[in-house]
Design a binder for these strands. Structure first.
Length: 897
RNA sequence: GGGCGAUUAACUCAGCGGGAGAGUGCCUCCCUUACAAGGAGGAAGCCGGGGGUUCAAAUCCCUCAUCGCCCACCA
């Protein structure tokens, strides 16, 4: 066994440990066994264009924690890995690369461009996989998927054809969100709305002939003046008295000259603006509906790049904002601009490139969502899928209950091409086909395939089952589906999570794709701002791992992960986590360096109160960690582990073991002392072993490195901690010992109190002291006698007298601890003023406690209604406080004498 | 216009019906032979304001304020 360096060096440990896991085959899925319940997790596939950011770091730590616990628990575990082809993102990357060479995708042509995308993926697509490895994620790296794999393509096509044939997919001319930069349609939820300050212009639209009431114009308001070029009617509310006389009149559209009607439509809000709406059916969804109802024309005045089209007459060719300025200027020149005011309104932006999107009338493919949503709503309602935290379910329901059809076609080249074939010759309806068609089945004429590809999310939604071989009915699918848990950020709840539930249930026999959904916190920077690479407000997890180690980063993130709060990233948590790793390292080093050659591990033995205490605490920890991971309470689990290991194991138990360890190693040691040393060694190894197992899911590298050095035998041994047995809380429960916990905490209180005296009076740790203890309980005397070695080791107490009738020595300071009075002789060093102040403060606090307790005990309502154990506790508290007050009063009297 | 979350020590946050906690920072002492990435001791909080429920409220309810997020076709 090699020497352990004095400080933990993660850079020397993580690489080799990871390689050993890989070589050991521990990541690979277990062979399909018989009865055991498998545990499957499908990783949210990162974009091939992606690199690890803090969201990934958090999300993948969470998944690794639950996966590692499951694996150690003996369940056949499979964490499915892969990447998403990310249509828009990847196409953008490749187009940027081409642009640097002065080329566009059109110069290459479709086929060559797609090949260039594949090439890009071969070069850059595995960046993030390497970063997951650096984090220690225990994915099955031998089973990597890509959403454009041939078998995955088959899954996508199968779903498309099924939905198409069942009437769940249709093509139509609708208003969609168009990104002029990406030159594609977007679905409604791919548009991000930002409130921006714009303007509301008021225009005068002249009437062709004066109305019955004599008026000759109508005033409309708009935030997008350029759209007037495409106006085809003006709408007012039917009940709006102001406009009753002009309904049916004709407006002569300024700048354009088109004669358009005034219609009455319920959708108009009379209270907004002027109560009269200019209607641009090709560029506003609401206007589109109005035009449909009234049979108005739909004039599309925008090209794909958001320049004005030929329909815009003299404005054709202008950019949309240029056109806006020009229209306003021309209206003003014509005396038709009545006013302008600033106006804050929500403006849609492309979620990929943040360009302002345009509502645009075009031919697109849509998926009919309501029929798919119904069973998916039911599945969450009846608990087949559970969200954590639960409150996300209402967000899910709200969206699902109001779900709208999904625009699934994209005018891109990189993606799953829509498998629909048209025959232009004979006019047969388009055919969706699993196989590419060469000729028309009706007339034998040539067919052409639809040019569009599918929304990337259309393929992503199949992830949990397409990665198990679906549409083939593979044994893997039968065995590993549904997955156990899906962990993700909330921003893709609708884009991805909801759609997986819908498509999963439809595709795989009505079965949900996962049982639990974890919506984890969003990681913000220290200022509470979204982390963004482009804004420079992000923190790179790779840098963090370099500074704090993968374990330090993981544990630091887990400490910050609670159900209610987003994370305002606190780097000092990573610092304390790295220090925690170092603490684990050194405690382990201490244990190992205090083992003898030929040491044989043995069962733990509660030979002393300290042993019983630490074993009891360990049993409590195991239960808490196990429950906590199952309930996804990561922050609480991390804190429990930290508290146990650092405070209880290191600060107390290791110190409590030192007397036995050192006594038993002397030449002159008695047989009993040698036995005591062996017991301590065995207990230390046992506790360390269990603690490392419990820590492993959160801190896999350091725990593995240390664990391999432990001298374990028999069934405690395993090829790797990764596949060692998870501590069984039920089995460990036999160590629960409330008496030992109480006794030891009394002892520890005395130690702390005496140390306090030492600190106040600057008594060197090297200087031994003798103390006198007075207690009312004979059991306390026995306890102190039995555990004197601890008092000696931890508080430097050389000798003591404990008795129920002990008397206070002269020139001593009194402290009350563990229900006892402890007198520390100070040989005339006592600072009476300081002691008076301290005792008076303690007295006030004790008096406060007593008053509170007495108030409760005097309250009949309390006695009548509070739980018996609460009352008993309150009585004990009162007694304790009273005793304490008596002792403190006595002290104070003496100090004042 | 709806909905959700947050408000606790200087900072970042736990706790969510029965004695106010952690990490970091701060103060004092200590390089004690596992660890100075450490040890020991300590200071520090009307638990956002106001009302209510309850024997009992940081914790449950209502309300207000502030901050943040999501959804929504208001020109």
């Amino acid at each position: 066994m090699s020497e352990m360096p004095k400080a933990y060096d993660h850079t020397a440990v993580e690489g080799p440990i990871f390689e050993s896991w890989l070589a050991g085959g521990h990541f690979a899925q277990h062979p399909l066994p018989g009865g055991e319940r498998p545990f499957t997790v499908a990783i949210p596939p990162p974009n091939v264009t992606g690199s690890l950011h803090m969201g990934h770091a958090l999300n993948n730590t969470i998944q690794d924690v639950v996966v590692r616990r499951a694996r150690m628990s003996g369940r056949p575990t499979r964490w499915v890995l892969g990447t998403d082809h990310a249509g828009i993102a990847t196409q953008n990357k490749v187009e940027q690369k081409l642009a640097r060479e002065g080329k566009s995708r059109h110069d290459l042509g479709r086929e060559a461009f797609i090949e260039a995308c594949w090439e890009w993926r071969r070069e850059h697509g595995s960046t993030i996989i390497g970063q997951l490895k650096a984090m220690g994620c225990s994915c099955d790296y031998s089973d990597e998927w890509f959403t454009m794999d041939p078998s995955y393509q088959r899954a996508v096509r199968t779903v498309f054809v099924d939905w198409y044939q069942q009437g769940l997919i249709y093509r139509g001319k609708r208003i969609i969100n168009w990104c002029p930069r990406c030159s594609t349609a977007l679905s409604d939820i791919e548009v991000e709305h930002d409130d921006l300050e714009g303007h509301l212009w008021r225009f005068r639209y002249p009437l062709a002939e004066p109305a019955a009431d004599g008026r000759d114009h109508v005033v409309v308001a708009t935030t997008r003046p350029e759209t007037m070029l495409g106006d085809t009617c003006v709408a007012v509310h039917p009940a709006d008295e102001r406009y009753r006389d002009i309904v049916g009149a004709t407006v002569v559209l300024p700048l354009v000259g088109r004669r358009i009607p005034v219609v009455a439509d319920e959708s108009v809000d009379p209270a907004f603006g002027t109560g009269a709406v200019k209607v641009t059916p090709a560029h506003d969804p609401n206007d589109f509906e109005i035009a449909e109802r009234h049979g108005c024309a739909k004039v599309n005045i925008l090209n794909a790049d958001a320049t004005i089209s030929a329909e815009g007459g003299t404005y054709a060719g202008l950019g949309r904002y240029e056109a806006r300025r020009q229209v306003v200027a021309d209206m003003e020149a014509a005396g038709l601009l009545l006013g302008v005011e600033t106006h804050v309104h929500a403006v849609g932006h492309c979620y990929r490139c943040h360009t302002v999107v345009e509502p645009w009338l075009s031919d697109q493919w849509f998926a009919r969502m309501a029929p798919l949503a119904a069973p998916a709503i039911e599945a969450v309602r009846d608990g087949r899928v559970t969200f954590h935290p639960k409150r996300w379910e209402s967000v899910y329901f709200h969206w699902m209950d109001n779900i709208r059809d999904w625009c699934i076609s994209r005018q891109l080249w990189w993606g799953h091409r829509i498998p629909v074939f048209y025959c232009d010759a004979c006019g047969t309806p388009p055919v969706a086909s699993m196989e590419d068609l060469a000729e028309c089945a009706e007339c034998g004429g040539p067919v052409r395939q639809d040019e569009d590809v599918l929304d990337t999310w259309f393929s992503s939604q199949l992830w949990p089952f397409a990665t198990l071989g679906w549409p083939e009915r593979t044994p893997e699918l039968a065995y590993f589906y549904p997955t156990a848990v899906l962990s993700t950020a909330r921003d893709i709840l609708f884009l991805w999570v909801a759609r997986m539930i819908m498509s999963g249930m439809r595709s795989v026999d009505g079965k949900v794709p996962f049982e639990d959904v974890i919506i984890h916190p969003t990681v913000f920077n220290a200022e509470g701002k979204r982390m963004s690479k482009s804004l420079g407000t992000g923190i790179d997890p790779l840098d963090l791992m370099e500074h704090y180690g993968a374990d330090g980063m993981r544990f630091g993130l887990m400490l910050q992960t609670t159900g209610t709060q987003d994370i305002r990233f606190a780097e000092e948590r990573l610092l304390s986590s790295r220090n925690f790793a170092n603490k684990i390292w050194n405690a382990s080093r201490f244990v190992l360096m205090n083992l003898d050659d030929g040491f044989t591990p043995g069962g733990p033995e509660a030979a002393t109160a300290a042993d019983a205490w630490i074993l009891s605490r360990l049993a409590g920890l195991a239960a808490r960690v196990d429950e906590g991971i199952v309930a996804y309470e990561f922050g609480d689990v991390a804190r429990s582990l930290y508290e146990f290991f650092w405070s209880e194991f290191c600060d107390w138990y290791l110190e409590l073991c030192k007397p036995r360890l050192f006594a038993g190693t002397r030449e002159t040691a008695s047989a009993a002392e040698r036995a005591g040393r062996l017991t301590a060694q065995r207990n230390l190894v046992f506790v360390l072993d269990v603690a490392l197992r419990l820590l492993h899911p959160m801190m896999p590298f350091i725990t593995e490195e240390i664990w391999r050095r432990l001298p374990l035998t028999g069934q405690n041994r395993a090829p790797s901690l990764m596949v060692a047995a998870w501590p069984d809380p039920t089995e460990l429960a036999r160590f629960r010992d409330n008496d030992a916990e109480r006794s030891v905490s009394k002892m520890l209180e005395i130690v702390v109190a005496v140390r306090g005296v030492r600190a106040r009076y600057r008594i060197s740790p090297k200087q031994g002291i003798s103390v006198v203890v007075r207690t009312q309980a004979e059991t306390d005397v026995q306890l102190l006698d039995a555990e004197f070695a601890y008092l000696n080791a931890l508080a430097g107490i050389d000798s003591f007298v404990a008795a129920t009738d002990a008397t206070k020595p002269a020139h001593s300071v009194t402290v009350v601890a563990g229900g006892m009075e402890v007198y520390v002789p100070l040989e005339g060093l006592v600072d009476f003023d300081a002691e008076r102040a301290r005792v008076a403060k303690e007295l006030a606090s004790a008096a406060d406690d007593l008053a509170k307790a007495e108030r409760k005990l005097a309250n009949e309502g309390f006695l009548a209604k509070a739980a018996p154990d609460v009352i008993a506790k309150e009585r004990a508290k009162a007694t304790e406080s009273a005793d304490r007050i008596a002792a403190l009063r006595e002290q104070l009297d003496e100090l004042e004498a």
